[in-house]
Amino acid sequence: MKAVTLAGPPSSGKSAVTIKAIASLKQKGVTVGVVKFDSLSTQDQQLYEKQGVPVTTGLSGNLCPDHFFVSNVEESLAWGVTSGFDLLVIESAGLCNRCAPHIQGVLAICVVDNLSGVNTPKKIGPMLKMADIVVITKGDIVSQAEREVFAHRVRQVNANATILNVNGLTGQGADELGRLLQGAPETTSVTGKLLRFSLPAALCSYCLGQRRIGADFQMGNVKKMAFS
């Protein structure tokens, strides 16, 4: 089985792009399964089911979605292998720009959209900077100039990634993405593999459920801003 991690900011078009690429792969007889990580709720389960794509959803609830993801990624792979998929797409929510879900030796994809603005590539951390493939969506509604500048800014922060434009509505570019997904290395287990970057860290009183505001109630990993 081949596996890929796919991440990107909320509403960037991760699922739309994935669904189009899977449709193209299906025509070639490739079976694909999806594990979808999200935080509070997701409609994507139904979205995938409607397309006949086997999907398992995991909701992180009050945990950091990235930490929840890494705690469940082994089991995700196992599910994919048991289900007999040719390809498993592990889609994670990318709820903060510091997300770092990519794994060494596993094909890593980041989805970003043109509408998020040309300064966005600079603001996204390891999820974008350490991806192998960057998919740029929503190119059909912004000007050519903005598409070119956006792609350029993505290259500035990740000079090595393969960048491609995919339209999640019409599917333009989805065949090409499908072809790249097929080039993912065989991955039947991630046990013992390394994350490409450390996850966002936090261990403070608020992680443990503290609600009261004030210096006396802040304990553990606490960081203070500078005011001039």
């Binding site: 043109n114 509408l115 603005g117 040309v118 912004v142 070119e148 393969t162 960048i163």
Partner: peptide
């Protein structure tokens, strides 16, 4: 094929807007 700065096709359509 994947050289994003050497794309063959630029597109202009009615639906496109400046968002910046």
């Amino acid at each position: 094929r994947y050289a994003i700065d050497r794309k063959l096709v630029a597109q202009l359509s009615q639906n496109m807007n400046f968002v910046m």
